[in-house]
């Protein structure tokens, strides 16, 4: 038996909106730790890892570890039917081939339940090694989204370079080239508006903008984004989910061979 009650239901709505275009089908894993997911896009270029910790739920009952295969587009369709202020409860019985999403309005005057069919998904769980990153950039998530969107109108790939000068995002395309440099800036009114760069080694890596633009669908989840880079390793683009966990996107670089 599984019963997870999330008072801030809008978080789950935003999570689905952030990953449904990158991943079609995925197994949601439920354990005493929390509600999590790890899935690759169909080309195996990017990987998404989601964690919503059990402590973040108002009620969290998960009698045994359970893996539920879901079509993310269908799940998003159902969650779109929940109001932004609704409380969402996820329910499943042991051995059932369905999951139920229950939506309660804040005043309890409207209660809906949506039952979705589960699916069998052959998924490969990958071990993500702990890494020390050469450079970690924290910046406003809206700024990162703007940069990815702007550069994708010029080129298909972005080179992200971190030096002591700052973080540079560059692209080239048929019509020309573009460079955007963000310098460390901690003298801002709100801490979330800061750009903070921690650099051990200079880094320069090239990525497909198509994917970084998918990642920025998570912008509504967090006002800041953390980009962790090491030469010749996948970049990690992390959006923290307030007091609950995170959505992390890993993207394999393009490498000169």
């Amino acid at each position: 038996m599984l019963e997870l009650r999330l008072v801030q239901g809008s978080l789950l709505k935003k999570v689905l909106e952030s990953i449904k275009e990158l991943v079609n089908d995925a197994n949601f894993d439920c354990s005493s730790t929390g509600f999590s997911l790890q899935a690759m896009d169909s080309s195996h270029v990017a990987l998404v890892a989601l964690l919503l910790r059990s402590e973040g739920f108002e009620h969290y009952r998960c009698d045994r570890n359970l893996s539920m295969g879901m079509n993310l587009n269908n799940m998003a369709k159902m969650l779109k039917c929940a109001g932004n202020d609704d409380i969402i409860t996820i329910k499943a019985d042991d051995g059932s081939d369905t999951v139920t999403f229950m939506f309660e309005s804040p005043t309890q005057d409207k209660i809906s339940d949506f039952e979705m069919k589960l699916m069998d998904i052959d998924s490969e769980h990958l071990g993500i090694p702990e890494a020390e990153y050469d450079a970690i950039v924290r910046m406003p998530s809206a700024e990162f989204a703007r940069i990815c969107k702007d550069l994708s109108s010029i080129g298909d790939t972005v080179v992200i370079s971190v030096t002591k000068e700052g973080v540079k995002f560059s692209t080239k395309g048929d019509i020309g080239a573009a460079n955007i440099v963000c310098r460390q800036n901690t003298t801002v009114d709100k801490p979330d508006d800061a750009t903070v760069i921690e650099m051990k080694e200079p880094v320069s890596l090239q990525f497909a903008l198509r994917y970084t633009n998918f990642f920025t669908k998570a912008t509504p989840l967090s006002s800041t984004v953390t980009i962790s880079l090491s030469n010749e390793l996948p970049v990690v683009v992390e959006y923290k989910i307030a007091e609950m966990g995170y959505v992390r996107f890993y993207l394999a670089p393009k490498i000169e061979e």
């Binding site: 195996h44 270029v45 990958l126 390793l233 996948p234 890993y250 394999a252 393009k254 490498i255 000169e256």
Partner: peptide, 14 residues
């Protein structure tokens, strides 16, 4: 030549 690496060349099945 620039090649797109696969995530599977960095992370392995558990």
């Amino acid at each position: 030549m620039i090649r797109q690496k696969s995530i599977l060349s960095f992370f392995h099945k558990t």
